[in-house]
């Protein structure tokens, strides 16, 4: 294993996440094609691109829901491709889904306390809703404004609330990097504002974010670094302003 290998960039405090020459084909179609990028440490990075450019596939490859056909994924300088999804989560990765996915028949609180931090047999036998994790979950639910629904079934929440709950789920293990798949989709403007506020708040406390989003004003507002994906590879990167005026980006959006 090359786990301990630290690339020079990381030593300079550069990248929290690095993707190198990532490839994934579905049938004959290359969904992700020689895709390389870095998510700078301490950033909120936007991942944008036209529909079908491979954004969600990239997320699925990073979190281990899909196996790549080739390439490397490094979290804080350590290889994580090849690890099962849960181990990637234990290494400090969190994610939300484009359409909120919850454990609908479990309570809001149970939804948040589900994960283990690591695996030891003894921990499987611990009481489900107790101790430090219970406290952490309560605190998170308080902050996203769902504390009073702790004992409700998650399936009963409104869609906006479900998105907030998913954010709390992603944050419960204090991840280093959270991947957000369209946090603003399907929710009303006030909710989007609230979501952006929360992201900024958690970012100040030390969690980095990689955000896929179609809502451009939100991306411009939230992100300090933007990656543009088209045809399964990164075609532009830089500050939101710089990317917005990049001719290659315009062409990808209009031509693709």
């Amino acid at each position: 294993m090359t786990d301990e290998r630290r690339p020079p960039e990381a030593e300079e405090g550069g990248a929290i996440l690095e993707v190198r020459a990532l490839r994934k084909r579905f049938g004959g179609v290359a969904a992700v094609d020689d895709c390389s990028f870095r998510v700078p440490r301490g950033s909120v990075t936007g991942l944008i691109g036209p529909n079908g450019s491979g954004k969600t596939t990239v997320f699925n490859l990073i979190t281990g829901m899909l196996r790549p056909d080739g390439g490397e994924i490094l979290l804080e300088g350590r290889r994580i491709d090849g690890l099962p999804p849960w181990e990637r989560t234990w290494r400090g990765l969190g994610r939300t889904f484009q359409i909120a996915r919850l454990f609908r028949e479990m309570t809001v609180l149970e939804n948040v306390v589900v994960p283990l931090r690591d695996f030891r047999l003894r921990r499987m036998a611990e009481s489900a809703v107790a101790g430090e994790e219970r406290r952490r979950a309560g605190e998170l639910l308080e902050r996203v404004g769902l504390a009073r629904f702790c004992d409700e079934l998650a399936g009963r929440l409104s869609y906006g609330q479900q998105k907030l709950l998913e954010l709390a789920q992603a944050l419960v293990l204090r991840p280093r990097l959270v991947l957000l798949d369209e946090p603003a989709s399907g929710v009303n403007p006030r909710m989007i504002e609230r979501m952006a506020e929360l992201i900024r708040e958690f970012h100040r406390e030390g969690t980095d974010f990689l955000v896929v989003e179609h809502n451009m004003p939100l991306v411009m507002d939230l992100c300090d670094h933007v990656l543009v994906l088209a045809g399964g590879r990164v075609i532009a990167r830089g500050s939101p302003l710089a990317v917005r005026s990049d001719p290659a980006v315009l062409e990808a959006y209009l031509g693709g």
């Binding site: 281990g64 829901m65 999804p85 609908r104 931090r117 921990r123 036998a125």
Partner: peptide, 21 residues
Amino acid sequence: TKFGLGLLAIREDEEKAAAMG
């Protein structure tokens, strides 16, 4: 237990459960 809660999560959405750790 944690174990049982994890099992319920697997029933509800196995992929999501794996992604959550």
